[in-house]
Design a protein around this nucleic acid. Structure first.
Length: 560
RNA sequence: GUCCCUGUAGCUCAGCCGGACAGAGCAACGGCCUUCUAAGCCGUGGGUCGGGGGUUCGAAUCCCUCCGGGGACGCCA
């Protein structure tokens, strides 16, 4: 249920009818009706809706845009749409349409009926998977993972609102080179902590967290692994460590408000032969060749500037090979649309993956990759450099602990993924004007407070139904209703353009309109009719803010 | 060198599926608490939308080019 879109489509029909009528009467000569738009003008002085059809037709109809616009207006059947109050021609040839305010007064009843469903589109039956974070299970989650988590989860929320059946997935990189190195690191620590002075691998995982993990294993298992051969020892250590790490990652993400539907193991792709199979399939299609003892995938056939190794000279498949198999599986599992949220450092991987999907016969348009620019961490204006020793600066746990889940998520989601984010810890944890999350939450809490006051004073009011909203004639009230009406369209655009930050911005806009209104108008007052209408207005704002915040993944507090 | 992102008010950023005089927050300056939470509100000043071409009736938005900033170019993931 999208009031704006319904009106737009009704207006579209009316305008098309006018064009047809004008053509039939030979008032206008043209071949085809151009793909014109009906939009909400930025400037309220330009009406409730504006149409650019006349300007687009100027050339083919060989008339001045304003002339065409006037002819369209003359042929409009105004009675066919009760809401139309006034239509005029303005600017370069815009058709500005003014509606009777009743269309806005109908909005609150709709919102109150749909409640948390307001803004959402009907189920469209299409399945979409959002894969995000997918951090290496060998270490802790860092700021980049935090941003990816906030964006990915919020995007999944937006898509769900927009009518898709969404699944969240975490791809576990539990195979490959880095796991080998992880295994070696674990073994070295295990031996060292058991009193055997072995050297630590040169490029091993030197972090303290690995030491802690091994200490835990020693405490539980004792030194019984000393008796095993090295391969067996590494295997067991890796299994135990990964289980612990993944549980920890899952717990952290959960406390960040993120819950996955599926945790998908890379290792199972190898074990089930899916990696070999997909390479074989590509080979049959002629995209695989051998060079220097390795197997190469001819990604240059799809616009890449150089080919890519899929099977190393040592016989081990690369990460890319496994990822091709993984993405093939995503489509095989029945997803209509597959979205990955990756760090910008993976940008070279995008074209190759789309090429691989094309080679396998999947439409690459069904795969979208959000490349998120990396996060630079600051503390009070000073950049925080990556620590060599721990391999990390601030972990997601520390972020949640220090800044708080709501503020962190809002700050991440608010920014366009394309923006290079300078994240200042000091700024983020300030509970001040610098911190927009509180501005929005405060609006929600204030409205809750009004209703608490109303209740305490024993005020009787009715929400929804046939409540007369037409007493809300102030420009501020009209502006708020208009903004509320735009929410479903905002969700739709955010989903279509994969831009959850639009919802955070929208929430800020609504909060701004509310705070201003609150300081100029009394909700609770003697005039019963007005009071009732304003309480309805408040309730509707509260619902929309709560809905927007839920998409962003931020709580809507009752009081602050 | 090739590729990706980016350059909008002093600062941080929206706007960029082309549309009518370019927006917000912060900072600066000046106001507003006996009334539903001052984590708020009101007002003032502040911009060659990096530069230059092009497409268009119309460009911050699309294309080309140059310049500045960030990043990627591994038989790592």
């Amino acid at each position: 249920m999208n009031p704006i879109e319904e009106i737009k489509s009704a207006l579209r029909s009316v305008i098309i009818a006018a064009l047809e009528k004008a053509r039939a009467e030979r008032a206008l000569v043209f071949e085809e009706i151009p793909p014109f738009v009906i939009e909400v003008p930025r400037d309220k002085g330009h009406g409730d809706f504006a149409c650019n059809a006349a300007m687009l037709m100027a050339k083919s109809a060989r008339r001045a845009p304003r002339d065409i616009a006037r002819i369209i207006v003359e042929h409009l059947d105004r009675d066919s749409m009760a809401h139309i109050q006034e239509v005029d021609v303005a600017g370069a040839g815009f058709i500005n349409i003014y509606l009777r305010p009743q269309w806005l007064y109908d909005i609150p009843a709709l919102v109150l009926e749909m409640k948390e469903g307001y803004g959402s589109a009907p189920r469209n039956g299409r399945r979409v998977m959002v894969e995000f974070v997918s951090a290496n299970p060998t270490g802790n989650l860092h700021m980049g993972n935090a941003r990816g988590g906030a964006i990915g989860d919020s995007l999944a929320n937006v898509l769900n609102y927009a009518g898709y059946d969404v699944e969240r997935e975490f791809y576990i990189n539990d195979a490959g080179n880095q796991i080998e190195i992880f295994a070696e690191s674990l073994e070295a620590r295990y031996l060292q902590l058991s009193g055997k002075p072995v050297p630590f691998p040169e490029n091993g995982y030197a972090g303290q967290d690995v030491v802690e993990t091994v200490k835990g294993i020693l405490a539980r298992e004792g030194d019984r692994l000393l008796n095993l051969d090295s391969a067996q020892r590494r295997k067991l250590l890796t299994e135990m460590a990964l289980e612990e790490k993944l549980a920890y990652i899952g717990k952290t993400l959960e406390s960040f408000g993120i819950n996955y539907d599926v945790w998908y193991s890379e290792k199972t792709l190898h074990e089930n032969g899916l990696v070999d199979a997909v390479i074989q399939e590509l080979r049959q299609k002629g995209y695989i060749y051998e060079k220097d003892g390795a197997q190469w995938f001819a990604t240059t056939a799809f616009g890449d500037d150089k080919d890519e190794v899929v099977i190393r000279a040592n016989g081990m498949p690369t990460y890319f090979a496994a990822d091709i198999a993984y993405h093939q599986e995503k489509f095989r599992r029945g997803f209509d649309w597959v979205i990955d949220v990756w760090g910008a450092d993976h940008h070279g991987h995008v074209g190759r993956m789309k090429g691989a999907m094309t080679a396998l016969g999947f439409d690459p348009e069904r795969l979208d990759v959000i490349l998120m620019q990396l996060v630079r961490l600051y503390r009070g204006g000073q950049i925080v450099r990556m620590s060599k020793r721990t391999g990390t600066t601030v972990s997601l746990d520390e972020l949640i602990e220090e800044v708080g889940r709501d503020a962190a998520r809002f700050l991440f989601v608010m920014r366009n993924p394309d923006s290079h984010l300078d994240f200042d810890m000091e700024l983020a944890k300030q509970q001040s004007l610098e911190n927009p999350v509180y501005y929005v939450q405060y609006a929600h809490a204030r409205i809750c407070s009004i209703f608490r006051q109303a209740q305490a004073a024993g005020i009787k009011y009715r929400l929804g139904g046939d409540v007369d909203m037409s007493v809300l004639t102030a420009a501020e009230e009209i502006a708020i209703l208009r903004k509320i009406a735009e929410f479903p369209t905002e969700v739709e655009i955010a989903a279509k353009t994969l831009a959850p930050h639009r919802i955070a911005r929208y929430a800020l806009d609504v909060a701004g309109l509310f705070h201003s209104y609150y300081n100029h108008f009394r909700v609770l007052q003697d005039d019963q009719t007005l009071q009732n209408a304003r309480l309805n207005l408040m309730k509707v704002i509260q619902i929309v803010i709560a809905n927007a915040l839920s998409i962003v993944g931020v709580s809507a507090p009752q009081q602050m």
